[in-house]
Design a protein around this nucleic acid. Sequence first.
DNA 1: ATCGAAGGTTGAGGTAGTCAAGTTTCGGGT
DNA 2: ACCCGAAACTTGACTACCTCAACCTTCGAT
Lengths: 160, 160
Amino acid sequence: MSATSGTNRSTEASDTGPLTVSNVMLLDTLWASMVSLYADLTSAAAAHGLTYSQAKALNVLRQGPAPMRALAGTLRCDASNMTGIIDRLEARGLVYREPSPTDRRVKNVVLSEDGAAAVSSIRAGMHGTHQALDSLSDAERSTLEGLLSRLFVAEDDRAS
Amino acid sequence: MSATSGTNRSTEASDTGPLTVSNVMLLDTLWASMVSLYADLTSAAAAHGLTYSQAKALNVLRQGPAPMRALAGTLRCDASNMTGIIDRLEARGLVYREPSPTDRRVKNVVLSEDGAAAVSSIRAGMHGTHQALDSLSDAERSTLEGLLSRLFVAEDDRAS
DNA sequence: ATCGAAGGTTGAGGTAGTCAAGTTTCGGGT
DNA sequence: ACCCGAAACTTGACTACCTCAACCTTCGAT
């Protein structure tokens, strides 16, 4: 868990080590990156009349149908919340509910063809992000991919 | 724009080199990273009874007072939105409005001491993020910082 | 002195998020 | 077989957030 080398969190930047990159700066950069991605995704979704949360739900469903409960867990929100979000997506035909054959309590949410097209279009419409990525070399993209995967994708597995 | 096919910048796909990292995968990773950061920040803010938007506003104000209009621009939301957000922060004493001495239309929003303490505590309370960052070496943190700065911080300057 | 534009607020309408019920269904214990 | 707790989903109330249109005050320039 805790890296034995540089314990830089919660300590001061007064650490004189030249190798230490203060997590304060990195946290600022991560924060700014998140805000930028969030804005880009939100505006790409808005171009289709969809919200950030709706786009997030559609994106998760790309990987296959999922029960309401699992969706809520993945999106880290209350189950009662999913009802409204899926209601609105269903009203637009981007998604539909299907009773589970094995458990009558469960309703599986399935991405429709229109829904798949919408989420693809939203991902393609994140122009700010695509444009930014184009300024990196292949090697840099690969490096970034590796670092972020270790940071956050693995973290998600741990949490779930 | 085919974001679904392999090569990203400049359509010349002549060299299908093994080095090419598909932007599709990288976009997935960026998306997941953003969701993870968003969730971590939201829960750290919630521990103080604050919302994501309120925390974002407080964080911007760390850099100094700002007029409502500038805040709205930085946070990429409507000016009418800031009124409510700042109202609620002001009601808790985390922030206060100050009339601009040079332009009577402008109200500068200033971070109070309690507000500065709150935002520091929120940043320190992003345990998932700090824990993840601890798994990187100093060199990796530095690399990540550099890549993300180029991707998003510079982009913000361009946009504004 | 006037007029257009900018900064800020208000109000209506819709989406999201949390919490506390409530219904249906499942599954284990006796 | 019957009960009872728990799980999956929904509903309702309440707040926050976001967008848009309208409004008031102030500024700056003509």
